[in-house]
């Protein structure tokens, strides 16, 4: 594998996760539990779209030809998307969304913090910029975890179930292959094994404050995103998201 191809693939993985989670968060628009929270959820969505655009454009530049952030976002199929599985999980109820995002935010927080030191300038700049945003997301969602897990009987039960339901999708975030190997060797990518223990600590810390139990690491984990193998949900999301550029090809919008 050539370095350039690995770099494209690596950028797409991060970009796709932000894009797909951003799209999920946009589904909350006008559906939030309070008006204030509606605005906060849109904010997170906008941050994620911004992050995604930065790396989609980077991948498009590396690819050359006529690729752009839009061709990459709107003209790739399910099997050509490489977002972490957890980001495509449906919003469910508010607690499901919070737990899903919390697991992913904690991962991004440590990943982007490390990415700041990447030998690749664009990825380093991306880490720098995105870390600020994801720090806010992590705080926001940690606070909700603590609140919901110490709220009413209903909210406590709900959040416990969300944790059980979503936990099996966390393993996929840490999967690595030859793309990672090549780029880690060049000090461009981050060894996700080093992120995993930090991630575990963040989860433990917040769950302790929330009186929640951290599920066992021995749970069988869902994987597949590195190879573009997804849940059934992604196809529907892309069908909706890509509808206009697919139905009216070769037009400016």
């Amino acid at each position: 594998m050539e370095l350039k191809d690995a770099l494209i693939q690596y950028s797409l993985r991060i970009a796709d996760s932000s894009l797909i989670l951003g799209q999920r968060m946009a589904e909350w628009c006008s559906n939030g539990p309070t008006l204030e929270e509606d605005i906060a959820l849109s904010n997170i969505s906008l941050d994620l779209f911004g992050q995604s655009r930065m790396l989609l454009s980077y991948a498009a530049d590396l690819k050359g030809n006529d690729e752009s952030e839009d061709t990459l976002a709107f003209h790739r199929n399910e099997r050509e998307y490489f977002n972490c599985l957890i980001t495509e999980l449906p919003n469910g109820h508010f607690g499901d969304t919070i737990v899903r995002n919390f697991f992913f935010d904690a991962y991004c927080y440590h990943l982007y913090n490390a990415l700041k030191e990447s030998k690749d300038e664009t990825l380093a700049a991306f880490g720098e910029k995105s870390l600020k945003e994801v720090t806010y997301h992590l705080r926001h969602n940690s606070e909700w975890i603590i609140r919901l897990a110490n709220g009413t009987e209903e909210s406590i039960n709900k959040i416990k179930q969300s944790v059980i339901d979503i936990w099996p999708y966390t393993g996929d975030m840490f999967a690595m292959d030859e793309v990672d190997e090549l780029l880690i060797e060049k000090s461009i990518a981050i060894d996700l094994n080093t992120i995993k223990s930090k991630w575990n600590n963040t989860i433990k810390e917040v769950f302790e404050r929330a009186n929640l139990e951290v599920p066992s690491i021995d749970v069988y984990m869902q994987t597949g995103s590195l190879k573009g193998i997804h849940t059934e949900h992604l196809g529907h999301m892309l069908g909706e998201m890509q509808y206009i550029p697919r139905a009216y090809p070769n037009m400016e919008w």
């Binding site: 628009c29 969505s45 906008l46 779209f49 839009d70 550029p245 919008w253």
Partner: peptide
């Protein structure tokens, strides 16, 4: 907002609704 035809249009529309 979920069907905006470009990334730019999507962001502008969501920010507007916000």
């Amino acid at each position: 907002v979920l069907r905006a035809p470009t990334m730019r249009a999507k962001v502008i529309l969501l920010a507007k609704i916000q």
